[in-house]
Design a binder for these strands. Structure first.
Lengths: 205, 205
DNA sequence: GACTTTTGACTGACTGGTTAGTAAGTTAGG
DNA sequence: CCTAACTTACTAACCAGTCAGTCAAAAGTC
């Protein structure tokens, strides 16, 4: 999950995606309105409707935009050493989201809409399948090289599932914003890193 | 997380709580309206406002209602054998929520609102603290009896955190409703049970 | 025990504000 | 002068919440 770069893009679509992100971050999904997005965009609500016919179109486009960046980020892992490749991949999946707390909240809120929005569900399912595939590939490669044992696969898959949740497992995650506006963001999650999990597993087998 | 019993209660407040639950389950938090709740209640919207001044009052009352039942349920664990007591407690925290899929979704959606609703945040924080306290007490008791080693405490706390999430870690959890309306609900979660976790841990130490 | 009064639980009609979305006209750049 | 990117002004639907009045049953009162 990369930051949102190109701070001064002249592409209205990208500007709207950024505005949507800010509005979602500040209002939450339940209170997200076209008006709020338009305010962040600095234009009228009709300007939003000029680019996206319906609110749902906009939201689906936004989800695509975010997940595209997510996939790009984990695709950047380019190493041949299986062990290092897995560690880097899992860092992207588990550690990176913790550094983008607000974005993670936004994505989790949209994920929470999947029971009521089929388009969202499709996107998340495809994304989950892709991430799963990536992990399986990396692990299979490691197994064929004799670096991993095959029990790791199951374990890693479990860790992958956590990626979509990350710090959400920490109760303080949800309350952080209201309790103390923007505190020490650099504080690391207390959730076990993948290397910890791997140690436990190999000790057990 | 108990079922909602007393199917025919004449207490309007309880009826409204149940109606709110059904409305929340079917509409999701973002689309939850007084009108929807009133429809489930079978009365007018003004009838809702007669019992609860504002929508927020109603929602906070609903959250209290749900969390109260949750606490009651885990309080029912009454055994002196530390090991069995911990297992039963963790079953309530980890396994029971999986049996109440819809309720869990509803609670998770409300938890997702905590960054924007201080009253919700308060309730969840108190609840988390209570659950944490319960677990710590049970574990400390087990340690003083010499049944547990103290490393279990950290491990159990981690499992507790999962309690608030449960099956949410399964991607299919979110998509289940849309994909196949009400499929095999009895299918057990694939997430490791606490006993599995404990076996791994003791094998490692 | 008949009567009045009070109270709890509503209904139906309404209000003011907000929502997503539209339609017609404007403006600046290539 | 054409088109992309808007704006202003609008609409219909919907939202939470209000208000005046209904109605049955409980509580006093004589």
């Amino acid at each position: 999950m990369a930051d949102l770069p190109e701070r001064t893009s002249s592409d209205p679509n990208v500007e709207i995606m950024r505005a949507t992100y800010r509005a979602l971050r500040e209002s939450g999904y339940a209170d997200l309105t076209i008006k709020r997005i338009a305010e962040e965009y600095g234009k009228s609500t009709a300007a939003i409707h000029y680019h996206y016919d319906t609110k749902d179109d906009l939201l689906v486009a936004f989800l695509d935009y975010i997940l595209e960046r997510f996939v790009e980020t984990i695709h950047e892992v380019e190493t041949t050493d299986p062990e290092r490749r897995l560690d880097l991949l899992l860092d992207q999946l588990l550690v990176a989201p913790a550094d983008h707390h607000d974005l993670l909240i936004a994505v989790l809120e949209m994920r929470g809409q999947t029971p009521y929005n089929e388009a969202f569900a499709d996107r998340f399912q495809r994304n989950d399948e892709y991430v799963r595939y990536m992990l399986r590939t990396v692990i299979d490669h490691g197994i064929s090289e004799g670096v991993f044992t095959d029990v790791d696969a199951e374990h890693a898959t479990r860790a992958l599932i956590l990626s979509s949740m990350g710090d959400a497992l920490e109760p303080s995650f949800w309350t952080r914003r209201i309790r103390s506006p923007q505190p020490d963001r650099r504080q690391r999650s207390t959730f076990p890193s993948f290397s910890e999990l791997r140690q436990t597993r190999s000790a057990g087998s």
